[in-house]
Amino acid sequence: MDPNHYRFQGVWRLAAPAPAVFAALEDVGNYPRWWPEILDARRTGEDSGEMVVRALLPYRLVIGLEARRRDPATGVLEVAMRGDLDGWSRFTVAPETPEAPAGGGAGEGRAGTRVLFEEDTRPGKALLRRLALPLHPVFRANHAVMMRRGRRGLAAYLAGGATEGHG
């Protein structure tokens, strides 16, 4: 096992239409409004940007992003990452209709969205690489918390409610 190689995957289920979810995820500059761990996100070029991230660990990550794929027809948003993290990250957004409960009922016919998150990354900075072996489980737990809070923040943002973000 290479302690400097991280592969993450998770599913977010959201009670919002897929086009709205795709649009929110495509608008990286708005992430700080709904994702508490995204401290700053700004565009640096036509298809590039920079994001500052800090979750539970007292360390800020500065990640350069470059769009690799933006395909509304297939629901795929993918970026290459460089800087404190090197690799790629991808959201795949798809409509999902929950199964109706036995005998019909409240959930019948309600459309939602399934978002598959995938990431393959390595620390880009020497300090993070040195800490990888002793802190590998901590880094993974930190990422899990960040993703859980991102899903909750996006759900609230899409519902028009209060968010956990910064403004």
Rank of each mutant, 00 (worst) to 15 (best):
A94W: 01
T44G: 05
V115H: 03
V21W: 08
L65R: 03
E96S: 05
A155D: 15
A16G: 10
A55K: 03
T163M: 04
R152V: 11
D27M: 00
A73P: 01
G83C: 07
A144G: 12
P32D: 05
P32A: 03
R140C: 05
R110I: 12
P3I: 02
E99V: 08
A162K: 12
V11A: 06
Y31L: 07
E78Q: 14
W88M: 11
R54V: 02
V21Q: 05
G165F: 10
T74E: 14
I38R: 04
E46V: 09
A126K: 02
L133Q: 11
G165L: 07
T44W: 00
R114Q: 13
A141L: 14
R13C: 01
R149H: 07
I38Y: 00
I63M: 06
A18M: 06
E99R: 14
R148D: 15
G103H: 06
G104K: 08
R122L: 08
A159W: 08
G105P: 02
P98Y: 09
A106D: 12
F22A: 09
M146Q: 14
G64W: 05
A67R: 13
L128W: 08
F22Y: 15
A80H: 08
R140P: 00
D86L: 06
A18P: 04
V52K: 09
A41C: 09
Y31D: 11
G160N: 06
P101S: 13
A18G: 07
A155C: 11
L77P: 03
Q9L: 01
G45W: 07
P134S: 06
P123R: 10
M147E: 13
L133C: 00
A18C: 05
G64H: 10
A23T: 11
D84F: 03
G104W: 08
N30I: 07
A132F: 09
R60K: 12
L14F: 05
V79L: 03
P137G: 06
L25A: 04
N4H: 02
L56D: 12
G105W: 01
V145D: 07
G109Q: 08
D47K: 13
G87D: 03
P98F: 10
A16W: 13
L14S: 02
R33Y: 12
P72K: 09
G103A: 07
F139N: 11
R152E: 15
Y59Q: 10
E26L: 13
A162V: 13
T121G: 01
R68Q: 15
Y59P: 00
L57K: 04
P58T: 10
R60L: 00
M147R: 09
L116I: 11
A144D: 15
F139R: 08
E50I: 09
L77S: 08
F91T: 03
A41G: 03
R152M: 11
E66D: 14
G167W: 02
A106E: 15
A111C: 12
A67S: 11
G87Q: 03
H166L: 14
